[in-house]
């Protein structure tokens, strides 16, 4: 995963969860990491990832992907 992509993910997290103070390392973050990141927040996050990385998650992926690690794995397969 390039540094550029990680930075893009950080930006996406910042926009989606504006009150969340991001740690330097984001790879370990999962749903519940902040109050806003509930199931609706997770959906908002994935919609933003779709838009910014220009991909489409399947229905199944939308319900299963719940962490940055999973998002990165999915981006690698793209």
């Amino acid at each position: 995963m390039s540094e550029e992509s990680i930075n893009k993910l950080k930006q996406i997290l910042n926009i989606t969860f504006p009150n969340f103070y991001l740690p330097d390392e984001i790879v370990d973050l999962t749903i519940g990491a902040c109050e806003e990141w509930d199931s609706l927040g997770n959906y908002a996050l994935l919609m933003m990832v779709e838009q910014e990385f220009n991909l489409v998650f399947t229905m199944k992926e939308l319900s299963e992907i719940r962490s940055i690690e999973q998002i990165i794995a999915r981006l690698k397969n793209n």
Partner: peptide
């Protein structure tokens, strides 16, 4: 349709 079944809202971010 995915958005509709997932969140009851059909509209995409676009």
């Amino acid at each position: 349709y995915r958005n509709w079944y997932f969140s009851n809202s059909r509209l995409t971010n676009l």
